[in-house]
């Protein structure tokens, strides 16, 4: 019951979803849509596990006054304020709580938190990667062999393509690199990825891959 039933459920639900793909009938389509709704609903409940875990870890740090516990206060404040703004609205002058309708999404505080806190930090964090991957490339890219030189040369040409010093030819070559050899490589990777995904999915459905069950 504890270990065998989940494998049976995985097999039956997985096999059914593969089978129904080849049944062009309205009822099959209905069940498909219904089961896809299951995924989003169960996923939504699973998200609560993650949020609860975040709250518990942060609260524990504050309660025990561990090192840098003050930052956990900031995390929890940001979390609860964002959730509060997302279900409330007072734009028309009267305060209201809107749990089942989306008025909270147009709450100016919710929008401002998104525009002036979330976007600046996330965009800056991604832009920081420019420095880190450039320094990593400086250490890793060495023209020690033909293939390493190809990698280095392709990267340099694509990075320099909008540089006016080199003229128009570099943009032509960079476009060719992106649209011909890069496209061929990406196609091979995507095909390999697709086959790998199918193989992994089949291993899960057939009960060969059981890592998702965890211990116990």
């Amino acid at each position: 019951m504890r270990r065998q039933l989940p494998f049976v459920l995985v097999f039956l639900s997985g096999f059914f979803m593969i089978f129904q793909y080849f049944v062009p009938h309205q009822k099959s389509e209905f069940v498909y849509e219904f089961l896809l709704d299951w995924l989003t609903i169960i996923g939504g409940f699973a998200m609560a596990l993650g949020i609860w875990s975040l709250i518990r870890v942060s609260y524990d740090r504050i309660k025990r006054q561990r090192e840098n516990w003050g930052y956990s206060v900031i995390t929890l404040t940001g979390l609860f304020l964002m959730m509060f703004f997302g279900i409330t609205n007072w734009e028309d002058g009267s305060f209201g709580v809107y749990i089942y309708t989306a008025e909270g999404l147009s709450n100016s505080m919710f929008v401002h938190f998104f525009d002036f806190i979330l976007i600046p930090i996330q965009a800056t964090m991604f832009s920081l990667l420019a420095f880190f991957i450039a320094s990593a490339a400086y250490r890793a890219f060495r023209a020690r062999s033909v293939i390493a030189s190809l990698l280095l040369l392709a990267a340099l040409i694509v990075m320099m393509r909008f540089n006016p010093i080199f003229g128009a030819w570099i943009e032509t070559v960079a476009n060719w690199l992106m649209n011909v050899p890069n496209l061929a490589a990406q196609r091979a990777i995507v095909i390999g990825l697709g086959l790998g995904m199918v193989a992994t999915a089949l291993k899960i459905i057939l009960g060969i891959e059981r890592g998702y069950m965890g211990q116990g």
Binding site: I74, T75, T77, I121, Q122
Partner: peptide, 25 residues
Amino acid sequence: EHLVVGVSAGYFVIIVWHGTMVPNL
């Protein structure tokens, strides 16, 4: 760093709530 963790988690909760849980359930 800690602010973005909290705010993005809160944002995600609201988007999942209004975009998934309310219309689908």
